[in-house]
Design a protein around this nucleic acid. Sequence first.
DNA 1: TTGTACGCGTTATCAA
DNA 2: TTGATAACGCGTACAA
Lengths: 337, 337
Amino acid sequence: MRAHSTIHDVARLAGVGIGTVSRVLNDHPSVRPATREKVFAAIAQLHFKPNPIARSMISKQTGSIGAIVPFFTRPFHIEVLCGIQNALSRTGRELILYNVENDMQRDHYFSEIPMHRKVDGLLVISLPPGDTFAQGFYAVGLPTVLLDAYNPYLTSLVVDNVEGAYQAVKSLIDKGHQHIGFINGIIEGNFRFNQANDRLIGFHRALGEAGLLFEPMMVTESAWNRRAGCAAALHLLAQQPRPTAIFAASDVQAIGVLEAARSLHIAVPEELSVIGFDGIEVSELLDLSTVQQPMQQMGEMGVAKLIELMANPQLPPELICLSTTLVERYTTTNERD
Amino acid sequence: MRAHSTIHDVARLAGVGIGTVSRVLNDHPSVRPATREKVFAAIAQLHFKPNPIARSMISKQTGSIGAIVPFFTRPFHIEVLCGIQNALSRTGRELILYNVENDMQRDHYFSEIPMHRKVDGLLVISLPPGDTFAQGFYAVGLPTVLLDAYNPYLTSLVVDNVEGAYQAVKSLIDKGHQHIGFINGIIEGNFRFNQANDRLIGFHRALGEAGLLFEPMMVTESAWNRRAGCAAALHLLAQQPRPTAIFAASDVQAIGVLEAARSLHIAVPEELSVIGFDGIEVSELLDLSTVQQPMQQMGEMGVAKLIELMANPQLPPELICLSTTLVERYTTTNERD
DNA sequence: TTGTACGCGTTATCAA
DNA sequence: TTGATAACGCGTACAA
């Protein structure tokens, strides 16, 4: 467990000053090839690696970016994370993961991370910060990009949730469904941009356009998970008239719907159509219709935008809207009339 | 974008020396309450937060631990990661994620991370380092814990893969299967400990114990993913005699088997039993029999062991073996005779 | 082209 | 109990 060698050791061994070693390390032009060689030799001999911490002291750069993620809630987040890692590893930067499980933890990170300055930039997934926090990020000069969330003060990357939900519900209506249940995700955070809210709007729009009556008891909400989705579905399926189709705000909730249907011996898709939202891998396995989000792409674009922002912190916030794709599979193959 | 205030600013405002401020921050006993108050007031007024980078310079501690993970390969890794995050967030430490996609990247991290000293400890998932690297970790004093991998020089947390595979195959034999196919994972890394190898041993043992003939053409291997699993299954199912059951080294591969069976119009479980390994969430959704690994627990125990090791780096390496649980579901409900 | 000295923001030592 | 000062390892003016 020998102590690591420092730039001083290298300088001594090479018979030069530390300044020269530093110049070699940062390949500064003005250093004679012969000297450079000597230094390189010493570096190799000592297995010297510059200490990144000491470097950070001066440069104010850490070489890592942070991601605040509600890690456990949905596979959706994992997929986005994969996109992030993917894009990030190519840049040689490392990723620090901040997992939030509740509002308290979220706000903790929102207020602490900018002060930590242990990251050069920040990605926030599905967690819209309030304006206070958003302005805080901006004020301390921490480049931040929001994914699947929106705040006017920060560059935000979202999908068109209204349109996505609209497509899903319209596809059901086109198949002749009149009574369509909707299981929304639980609305949390601020309301300027909210996935759940937008999906509800899309639901309304599709109904309205088709001249269908909006039936309040056909709409409910649940947490973003299977069990809650199942419970919500049981609730909807107990209504009169019973919905012939259910649109869930996420695939995991939709899977809960499938479970509910099975437990009630309601055949899918014969008696009940089901469509989810996200397009996570399981949806394909279960042959579940869904609204596909470009998850990987969101992660990758988020990194790209963040790096852009880190290179030029003056850039004004941007709102980027990606589009979704309707994927019709087995669970919506029944026609009504 | 005002510069952050430092300990000096606080000292000046409070009318004390920086030493005193430092003592207050680290709640050193010998500081008079009155002085402490003054300092606290100044800290609050300036919104001062100690700079963790500067702290690290002295303390040689970064407050973060690293995890080297083959991130994209299997849901298994995600689950372990969840366990890690879970345990870690309680300790106030942060997690740096190193994603490896190939051997080169793996070796890169193995050799770079110890020198970086940007992490206080390291978790390595499913990637057995060679002895050279393992001894390297030990030599530079980087506490390291291996999860789902083994090296004699490092604390390792594994499941009993031999026993797990044995249980799976035995359960098939008990149901009367005589021709059991085995799709192993691709063997990579060193061979001292290897999940794939151990599972093959378990397969052999169950066969041998039952006095069944080992049929080489019933064994194949594939990458740890669905598509490869499907291809491997197609291969096995083309053999004569056709296997009446297939054991796959992972759930994702087993799912590939299900797809292969479907495409060949082979009914599961009537004509073909299928059992996987891991016990990822999807296995439950698909009603797939499997050998359940305690994934979350592996992550949590890994963190616990690592923290133990960081507190006392002298601790000798330990080999901890967790056990698996056979979970029999729909895909293995056919009896043969 | 090269070496020296200073600064980065802390902690730790040591007088006072 | 306190304040000054020396590390920590590196980047960088500035002087040589």
